[in-house]
Amino acid sequence: MTIFETARFSLPLLAAGQAHKELFHNDALILLDFLVHPVVEAIANDPQSLSPVAGQCWLVGLAAIGEWSGRENQIAGWSAGGWHFIKPQKSMKITVRETNQLALYREDGWWFNADITTPTGGNNIDSEARSAIDSILAALKVTGILPEIGQNDSGLS
Rank of each mutant, 00 (worst) to 15 (best):
L50M: 13
W83N: 07
S51G: 09
I75P: 00
A42N: 05
F24V: 05
I30M: 07
T95L: 15
A16W: 11
I116D: 06
P88H: 03
D126M: 04
A19P: 10
G109E: 10
D153I: 09
A64I: 03
L146M: 11
A54I: 12
S69Y: 04
N26Y: 06
G61Q: 03
Q151Y: 08
I65K: 10
L140V: 07
L137G: 02
A19L: 10
G122R: 10
D46M: 03
L140M: 15
S69Q: 15
V39A: 04
A64P: 04
F9S: 07
A139G: 05
Q74M: 12
E41C: 11
W78F: 08
P12Y: 06
A28L: 06
L11D: 09
G155C: 09
F34R: 00
H37Q: 13
L11T: 11
L31Y: 05
K90R: 10
S131T: 14
S10A: 15
G144V: 06
G122C: 10
I30C: 07
L140W: 14
A15D: 11
A42C: 11
W68C: 02
I116N: 08
N124V: 15
G70H: 02
E67L: 11
H20Q: 13
N100P: 00
K93M: 04
D33H: 14
R97F: 04
A138W: 11
S79C: 11
Q151K: 13
I145V: 15
L146C: 05
D115F: 12
L32N: 13
P88L: 01
Q18Y: 02
A15L: 10
C57H: 03
F4M: 09
I86G: 01
Q151T: 11
N73V: 02
D108T: 15
R106T: 11
S131M: 10
G66M: 04
